[in-house]
């Protein structure tokens, strides 16, 4: 049951973001709107995402914000393994977003299914159903780790040429201390 979890802090599938044209990249890199989707998480990820809007992390200072409608969203953040009851809702939300769509999986549940076994009610990790661009593993990832992932997303959109090994992010906040 206890799988070895991916130790890499942030793993990315660069392909889709890389393929975007220059103008789109430029536009998105200045402001990212996020639509959050809970596909069966244990609500710890939601608590940490909510913490991003508090005055200590203050997400909006980086030009990133949450939006209420998928129609306005550039990024879909997904947390938790996909449950049977939410599969249709998840697909509908994804389809409701305008292209280009960036999908970020937050937490172990979304990244690799975590400890939740595949069952009659739980269908497994998110990238079995949606193309995921950035993975932010963690149990749950701390707000600074999530912020790091979101800033990485912005950086990917910003730079013209990216090599996977050169992606280095300064820690914008000391985690927790």
């Amino acid at each position: 049951m206890l799988k070895m979890l991916n130790t890499e802090i942030i793993r990315t599938e660069l392909s889709r973001i890389k393929k975007l044209d220059k103008n789109t990249k430029h536009a998105l890199s200045k402001s990212l709107l996020i639509r959050h989707l809970d596909t069966g998480s244990c609500n710890a990820e939601e608590a940490e995402l909510l913490a991003l809007s508090n005055p200590i992390y203050d997400l909006t200072q980086f030009g990133i914000d949450f939006t209420a409608s998928p129609r306005h969203a550039d990024v879909l953040t997904v947390s938790g393994p996909v449950t049977r009851h939410l599969k249709i809702a998840m697909e509908k939300t994804y389809n409701a977003m305008p292209s280009p769509k960036i999908v970020i999986a937050i937490g172990d549940g979304a990244c690799n299914g975590s400890i939740y076994e595949k069952s009659y009610a739980c269908l497994g990790k998110v990238d079995d159903f949606l193309p995921v661009d950035i993975y932010i593993p963690g149990n749950p990832p701390t707000p600074s780790e999530i912020l790091n992932g979101l800033l990485l997303c912005k950086e990917l959109l910003n730079s013209k040429k990216i090599k996977k090994s050169t992606v280095k992010l300064k820690l914008c906040l000391k985690p927790n201390k």
Partner: peptide, 25 residues
């Protein structure tokens, strides 16, 4: 019950320690 993951069912047959990890989650 949208996030119903069948945790109680999946705990069956597990050891006590594994159950504790499920309980935490």
């Amino acid at each position: 019950f949208y996030t119903h993951k069948g945790i109680e069912k999946s705990a069956e047959g597990k050891t006590i320690e594994e159950g504790l990890i499920l309980a935490e989650h």
